[in-house]
Write a protein that binds this DNA or RNA. Structure first.
Length: 555
RNA sequence: GCGAGCGUAGUGUAGUGGUUAUCACCGGGCGUUGCCAACGCCUGAACCCGGGUUCGAGUCCCGGCGCUCGCACCA
């Protein structure tokens, strides 16, 4: 996998040139935390911006920024408190921590599904031997969560919270504001780039599994019953490499994959196409990109269907994007937890008329007669057929039986006209791991060449995300060449969106080499002729070709 | 989390318990050259942290932190 030390040389270069560095290193470092350095920092923000620009082209999405500090209740409602934790217990004898559900596997068909109290009870009852020392003295079961705990507020007024494990929840809880913003018309989307946190048990593989990471997510809200008009034709001449659930890899167009039901939702397919375009735009090699569908049992707790974009690099095939059809799971969960409505309205083509001809209670008599049960009696009575005769014994929801007399009821005859209905929108979510993507962009761009018999490194970064746009060199810092070059550098830096780098140290060849190593697309050299006619040489990184242009045409 | 290996300038490295800690690239300055990692001189920069053994520890022992790999776990 690692071709004779390429990964080591690449990592060394990234550290030396300031792309990626272990964070807080002078204090001994911290696992799973990285700095984007003086070169990488700029590259990261360009990728983020490019991502936003790319999805804004949909025309019906907006950008949000939600807090990373999140109250306990939000993540409890979303299912993360339950799903993102393992229940741990410690051996009282040797101190070894074990997962309670693993210990109980021989004693229960599915201990993973047990709640904490049930696990605890079963553990104390069974007392399985410690895999470490064989003793049977387990501590209370504690939830060890993969989310970072924190306390919001101080002292007794503080309440528990977490650092968010994904940006999505803030967008779900803002649904009503989004809905209003979009004049209550679906589909629409909200997106944000930001930090997410997971207290990984074992961060590994550099940028691949981090404890604090950059993510970019879009929540696209759709009406599950609306007619779909996802246009997949833009990708008809660009088949994708797909690996479907339980199937083998195929090269297939998105249109065809939908027709064959490999991809279960056309919006998911369209987002796969848009994702591919984004990745290729910023420099991912399309031949090292594939989409893989999750197996049913692999799917996260919220997903209905999920396709990963996987990119091949120094660590093999790595999941860098997840495109999940989350159904109505999230909005429904927050509705249940809060009692608030998170819905959109769908008007019927024709108003629907519902005719009711049955019974209901007469509040004046049933109320005093059934007191607290009156509500349940009403529900039960209204469910009875018109042919019922009273008095009559009926069963209530809570199991109680009551006798309802003729005096307690009255006919219920009405016609209700409904012009539409409220429903919980479904969500399609493309979620991008920015760090993993940047890693692969770098990995694919990093080229080890040979130049005049010497090893030579070149970063073929796309100009769309290169950390530096122009490098400006005075051939020699004398006769005014230095001043002219510095002024040009300043002018370029004043241009919005451009970054120029001035370098006057070392031979010109060395400076080209330094610029090539961090992927500067264009080097501009000021020489003697520049002083006379205001022209400079412009050199292309990948071809090495030079031509003269006037300074004016640059800015 | 378990097991194994590793931790020396910015990077890559050498280093029998006793050196002024090796070499290369690298960075900076000066000079020279003047369009693809040129050269000379000068210069900068390191034993992961904390204990222990020892007259003496980069080297041996213990613990921590970090890195790599395998297992386990997991977006």
């Amino acid at each position: 996998m690692t071709e004779d030390g390429r990964l080591e040389r690449l990592s060394g270069m990234l550290k030396r040139r300031g792309f990626l560095l272990p964070a807080f290193e002078i204090h001994g470092g911290a696992k799973g935390l990285y700095d984007f350095g003086p070169v990488g920092g700029r590259m990261r923000s360009r990728v983020n911006q490019r991502w936003l620009d790319h999805w804004l082209q949909l025309g019906n999405v907006v950008e949000l920024s939600c807090p990373t500090v999140t109250p306990y209740a939000v993540l409890e409602a979303s299912g993360h408190v339950g799903e993102f934790s393992d229940f741990m217990t410690e051996c009282g004898s040797c101190g070894e921590a074990s997962r309670a559900d693993t210990l109980l596997e021989p004693h229960h068909p599915n201990p993973d599904a047990l709640k904490r109290d049930e696990l605890q009870a079963l553990l104390f009852q069974v007392q399985p031997p410690c895999p470490g020392c064989g003793n049977q003295a387990w501590s209370e079961v504690k939830a060890q969560n993969l989310m970072f705990n924190t306390t919001i507020g101080a002292g007794d007024s503080g309440r528990p919270g977490f650092l968010r494990p994904e940006t999505a929840q803030g967008m779900f809880t803002s649904f009503n504001a989004l809905h209003r913003h979009f004049r209550e018309r679906l589909p629409f989307g909200a997106m944000q780039v930001g930090k997410g946190y997971r207290n990984e048990i074992a961060p590994r593989q550099g940028m691949i599994r981090l404890r604090e990471f950059n993510m970019a997510e879009l929540e696209y809200f759709i009406d599950p019953e609306a007619e779909l008009n996802d246009d997949l034709s833009p990708w008809d001449d660009a088949p994708l490499h797909l690996i479907s659930d339980g199937g083998n890899g195929v090269e297939i167009t998105l249109s065809e994959a939908c027709k064959q039901q490999l991809i279960r939702h056309p919006t998911v397919a369209r987002f796969m196409g848009i994702t591919r375009d984004f990745l290729v735009d910023i420099g991912i090699d399309p031949s090292r990109l594939r989409f893989r569908q999750h197996e049913q049992d692999e799917m996260a707790h919220y997903a209905v269907d999920c396709w990963d974009a996987e990119i091949e690099g120094s660590y093999g095939w790595i999941e860098c994007v997840g495109i999940a059809h989350r159904g109505c799971y999230d909005l429904e969960s927050h509705e249940k937890a809060t009692g608030k409505t998170l819905r959109a309205r769908r008007e019927f083509d024709e108003p629907r008329t519902i005719t009711i001809d049955a019974w209901t209670i007469d509040g004046a008599t049933a109320g005093p007669a059934f007191k607290a049960l009156a509500g349940a009696v009403k529900t039960a009575v209204e469910a009875l057929p018109k042919s019922t005769s009273f008095p009559c014994e009926i069963s209530l929801e809570n199991g109680a039986k009551v006798v309802v007399g003729e005096e307690h009821v009255k006919p219920n005859q009405k016609t209700i006209k409904e012009t539409g209905e409220w429903y919980i929108p479904h969500v399609i979510e493309p979620a991008f791991g920015i760090d993993r993507i940047i890693w692969h962009v770098i990995d694919h761009a990093y080229s080890e060449l040979e130049k005049n018999g010497e090893p030579y490194t070149l970063m073929r970064l796309s100009p769309t995300i290169a950390p530096v746009d122009y490098a400006v060199f005075p051939l020699f810092e004398k006769d005014g060449m230095g001043e002219l070059a510095w002024n040009l550098h300043q002018t370029l830096c004043k241009t919005s969106g451009l970054v120029s780098m001035y370098d006057a140290s070392g031979s010109i060849g060395r400076r080209y080499a330094r610029a090539d190593e961090i992927g500067v697309p264009i080097c501009i050299t000021v020489d003697h002729q520049s002083l006379e006619d205001g022209t400079v040489t412009v050199r292309d990184r990948d071809t090495g070709e030079q031509h003269r242009i006037t300074i004016d045409s640059l800015s």
